[in-house]
Design a protein around this nucleic acid. Structure first.
Length: 502
DNA sequence: TCTGGGGTCCTAGGACCC
DNA sequence: TCTGGGGTCCTAGGACCC
């Protein structure tokens, strides 16, 4: 049997842990730069708010007004002016995303699963697969060989498993404050399907199990094809055009028909799984094969210098992620693009990469390479909206093939020690406690160095005059570069934010 | 004014090896 | 008349996931 443990409305539930007054009320969490809705409470879903809605559209759509309630607890609660009369909610709470908090709380959920389950795999920030061996009476031991279990015995084991799921929900709710839904089934796809029913119907007490043929058929018939794990928008549209509306319709087709229609092993596996045949391989804790750090800018940027600073920061994060998983990369890529939504503006997009002779995870080397690539793709005259750094060709950090003709052992060890010290300082004292000089840029009165120099040049100043009139520059650190007007505090990770009890 | 940020797998085709 | 039989590696593109 397989299980999936899925946090309900994950980011919203994280926010509610420290804001229990928001239980039962509409809550949304926004993406970076307060761009789009990425999480919604059930009440927000009932208001008709769709995932991915741009925040500014939502505010127009619902007629947000600053709340008049004098007892309001935060600046991000709004009165709703335009909701349908039938909707009982008059207020909504809006949060910027706070990944420091979400990472911490979901980590606690995983820790409990680690203690309670024989084997597990963290599938995403808010989902965890759980594997049960054939012989489930021996908790904590996974046996690969098949076990012949009598029907009566199996039914007892499954009943115990259902209890296990309900208890797991209770423990996670009580110790972390996170509501989770648990699905159990003979394949991962059926477990995922079961978890939806666990969410939808309170009668399951947060844990739904598909363990008989009768339950499987009933569940498949109630399940729209487009909601099946592994069936995306494209495949769903194709299937629906062929009269396949539910998971049951799909499962009822012959396997040969699936093969002939799609010529695709992945969708065939999904078909097998819906029919109770375990076909999706168990995943293991794998190291990432590519790592990407990218951000949209709050506004648009034309000058090279601030973009270079952002790219240096993304490259730094990639290097940190590489070291955290004990790997090195042999390729660094950088992309840069304008704002695709602004059809009235000239558009530009580019991506290029650079290959290292010796794979590396050194911050300095990766930042340097990313800066070089950026210089190749940056074209003046455009208003840029987004940039990103990708590291690829990832392999273990030991052993690494050195350069036969250019190897400086002393320098190599020096860089390694420097990175280790930077990582340690930032781990103990908080990220970006220590940064590279290239991660910041000079700015005065909202103008960057390039703009300042351009103005000086336009004013006809000679170099001596320029030097004399050069403004006192202030370094602006990258951490402030993302807009998050409604971000909550970090009571679990920062002493300054710790909860006070009166 | 305003629109996120990550990942994976599979396949076909081309270049190359002996 | 008559043109083999194995492989690997890499890349681009397309689908999917959260």
């Amino acid at each position: 049997m397989f299980g999936i443990v899925d946090c309900d409305n994950c980011y919203v539930s994280c926010e509610r842990v420290f804001r229990p007054d928001l239980n039962g009320k509409p809550v949304v969490v926004l993406s970076n730069n307060d761009g789009c809705v990425v999480a919604r409470s059930n009440e927000a879903k009932a208001l008709g708010i769709k995932a991915g809605t741009p925040y500014f559209q939502l505010a127009q759509q619902l007629g947000f007004r600053p709340t008049s309630d004098a007892t309001r607890q935060c600046s991000y609660e709004y009165d709703i002016a335009l909701a349908a009369p039938s909707v009982p909610y008059k207020k909504i709470a809006v949060f910027s995303s706070n990944y420091e908090l979400y990472g911490e709380l979901t980590g606690r959920v995983v820790e409990i699963i680690r203690q309670e389950a024989p084997a597990y795999f963290r599938y995403s920030i808010d989902e965890c697969f759980v594997y049960f061996p054939e012989n489930r009476s021996e908790k904590g031991k996974v046996k690969s060989e098949k076990f012949a279990v009598a029907d009566s015995q199996l039914s007892t084991l499954n009943s115990q498993l259902k209890d296990w799921g309900e208890n797991l929900h209770q423990r996670i709710k009580k110790s972390v404050g996170m509501p989770v839904s648990i699905g159990l089934g003979p394949t991962k796809t059926l477990a995922k399907l079961a978890s939806h029913f666990a969410k939808k119907y309170p009668g399951y007490r947060h844990c739904c199990m598909i363990d008989t043929e009768e339950k499987r058929v009933k569940a498949l018939k109630l399940y729209p094809i487009e909601d099946v794990w592994g069936i995306g928008r494209r495949y769903a549209a194709k299937l629906e055009s062929m009269g396949v509306k539910t998971a049951y319709d799909f499962a009822q087709h012959h396997g040969d028909w699936v093969k002939a229609t799609f010529n695709n092993i992945v969708i065939y596996r999904t078909w097998q799984e819906l029919n109770g045949i375990d076909a999706v391989p168990n995943e293991e804790m794998a190291k990432k094969k590519s790592i990407c750090t990218s951000r949209s800018f709050p506004g648009m940027i034309s000058d090279f210098e601030p973009i270079r600073t952002h790219v240096a920061n993304y490259a730094m994060r990639c290097a940190e992620k590489l070291r955290a998983q004990e790997t090195v990369a042999s390729v660094v890529g950088v992309f840069l693009n304008t704002n695709f939504f602004r059809e009235d503006l000239p558009q530009y997009w580019n991506f290029q990469e650079k290959r290292f002779v010796v794979p590396t995870n050194s911050s300095i080397e990766i930042v340097k390479a990313a800066t070089e690539v950026l210089q190749q793709i940056f074209v003046p005259g455009y208003q840029y909206k987004k940039a990103g750094v990708i590291v690829m060709g990832i392999g273990p950090n030991s052993p690494v093939q050195m350069d036969l003709f250019d190897y400086n052992a002393e320098q190599f060890q020096k860089m390694k020690r420097l990175d280790a010290v930077i990582d340690r300082i930032n781990k103990v004292n908080g990220s970006e406690t220590i940064i590279l000089g290239s991660q910041q840029y000079t700015k005065k009165d909202g103008k960057g160095k390039a703009a300042i120099e351009r103005e000086q040049s336009q004013a006809g100043l000679n170099s001596a005059e320029r030097k004399q009139s050069r403004p006192k520059v202030k370094a602006e650190v990258f951490a402030n570069a993302i807009k998050h007007d409604y971000r909550s505090k970090n009571p679990t990770t920062r002493w300054s934010d710790i909860i006070r009890l009166k």
